[in-house]
Every structure is written in C-alpha cells, then in structure tokens.
Amino acid sequence: MFAEFLQFLLSGVTVGAAYGLVALGFSIIYNASHVINFAQGEFVMLGGMSTVFLMAAGLPMPVAVVLAVLVTVVLGLLLEKLAIEPARGAGVVPLIIITIGASIFLRGVAQVAMDREFHAMPPFTGDAPIMIAGATILPQSLWVFGGMAVMGMLLWYFFARARFGKAMLATAYNPLAARLIGVNTRLVLLCSFGLSALLGSVAGILLAPITFTSYDVGIMLGLKGFCAAILGGMGHGAGAVVGGLIVGIAEAMGAGYISSEYKDAIAFIIILLVLFFMPNGLFGKRTTERV
C-alpha cells in the first residue's frame, strides 16, 4: 500500500522535476518580455534528439550531451535574433504567435534533419533499480532530480547575486527604469532565450533515457511545463519548480490510482482549476507598488 504510493510519488517527482525545468524556461522569457514562448517544448525535444543523433554519429555521451546543449542554446539565440527581435514593436500577442510558428518550424526541421522514430537514450549511469522502502527508483531519476536541483541553485545564484542577473530581474520589474539606468534590454531578451533553451535542453536530455524521445515530444512536455509555470505563478522561479513537482506528482497519482488513460488530462484539469480560482498561481505577484 505505502510502497505503491511511494512508487507513484517517486515517478511523479522525477517527471515533475523535468516539468519544473521547462517551467523555469517559460518564466525567464516571460519576465524579460511578457511573452509566453510556445517553442519552449521544442528546446526539450532538441536537447534529447540531438544527443541521440550525436551519439549515433559515434560521439561519446558526455561530448554529445554538451554539444546538444550548445546546439539548442544557439537555436534559441537564433530564434530571438531572427524571429522575435525584428517584431519587437509588434506587441505581446503577435510575438506569442511567432513562437507557435517557430515551434512548428523546429519540429518540422527535426523531422527532416533527424527522423520520425522513437529513440531510447541509454541512462547516464546504468539501469539497475534502487530499492527504497519497497519502491524502486531508477538511477536516471536521481539524475533528473539532481539536475533540476543544481540548475535551480545556479539560477538562484545568478538572479540574486550576479550583476547581469539582477539587471535581468530589474528589466522584468520595470523595463523603462532598467533602460534609464543603462541596462541593454535587448541583450536581456536575447539572453533570456539562450537561458531558456539551456534549461529546456537539459530537461530533455535528463528525461530522454526514461521516457524515450522523438521529434514531437516537445508538444506535451512544453504544455505540461506551461501548466506548471501557470500553477506556480508565471514569472516566479521557485513557483515554477514547485508547480512542476505538483503537476508531476498529480499526474503520477492520477495515472496510478485512477487510470493511466487520463494521465495527460490531469495537467490540463489543474491548469483550468488554477485559471478559474487563482489566476495568479500559487506564488503569483502580490503587488507591492505604492503610488
């Protein structure tokens, strides 16, 4: 009974950690521009798929992983430079539509440049399950969770301590004032896409050995990450992580206790409930402005 519960919890936490990384990517771009980047899921796909194909080309795994992250980051930067920046004056909604177009484009390119098959990536450190109180956990799950923890701490340090990180936050809070103190807000937007691509690709690579990967995994992972970001409060870092874990755990519990048929529906039920009852999310901005 408890072992079963623990099993669902562990698999929920694993996939939830990946959702959390995707949600962080959404939040960073949202903060820099108020744009919801619907190509976020494609960053996840590109991370996993590039690693698989680079390994198939004979590269050792660590090299393939690093290269895949770099490829995804470069594509994220190009997306901002070529598609977002030229349309910057157009307003938020056209920019969001551009990101939807970009996601379809990236998926199409991945189909042509790679293929349409499902691929299994070998786990980083073997696949001997670890027993915990009657439940089992794959070593790769620890990688996913550890990866999220490390990325989360690095991000926290970047935004709380580094000068450019603070400038990115300042731009989120008040773009006009940020420009007036000399922050290059274009560079902030460019870096937000690079950083989001980095987070997405890491999530995709960590998760690929558990869930398989293919050219279209980005759709679902992107949408689940979006649900997590909304649940946590769009633009809130810790909220994104917590939101990801909640969505992942709820999904695993729903699949385990209700029916695995409904697994994908659960995230969307959560997002509807959040939008109906607490549209600012769990950690949504409480306004502290006094005028």
């Binding site: 936050l169 809070y173 502290t288």
Partner: peptide, 11 residues
Amino acid sequence: VPEGRQMFGPM
C-alpha cells in the same frame, strides 16, 4: 529620475 519614480518594486 523618471516621472512616477519607477522603482524596481520587489527589489
């Protein structure tokens, strides 16, 4: 010093 102060409110 812009009109309306323009703080980075939560910081």
